[in-house]
Amino acid sequence: MKRVLLCALFVMLTQTSIAARALSDEKRLHQWLVQPKACIVQKLGDTCEIEIIITLPPLPPGLYCYYQNKLRLMCFDAQAPMMQLTLNYTQSILFSIQNQENEIFYSQQLEIKTRESKKKVRRARDPWSLF
């Protein structure tokens, strides 16, 4: 009797674990994902040209557009979404997907990182202008 109970408990735990994993996979598949999330340039101010891969959850039927901050990049139908895109930017941006009513469905901050640790700034005076 004790063995039967232990077996039943084992089966229940196993089934729960499998169900949880399946749910997790399903959730992951339905997540909005943009990769990579950061781009590395030599120094601040350099333009980053990067190809991003987008994982989209199922979208309600309709027309959607990708935006780089407030700039519309391209539009597509929900049935045939674009999953790859090349972006150009010089500072961190907000990448988003919006519907025709300009409602943001999903968004992702894309960072820009520099190899040179030193920051460069504009000078307040011209060079060689002590007097």
């Binding site: 601040l44 010089t90 500072q91 030193k118 920051k119 460069k120 700034v121 060079p127």
Partner: peptide
């Protein structure tokens, strides 16, 4: 905010 320092002569590295 970061600046466009493509023109090196007009820009300078900080802390140096």
């Amino acid at each position: 905010e970061p600046e466009d320092c493509s023109n090196n002569e007009q820009c300078i590295e900080t802390d140096q």
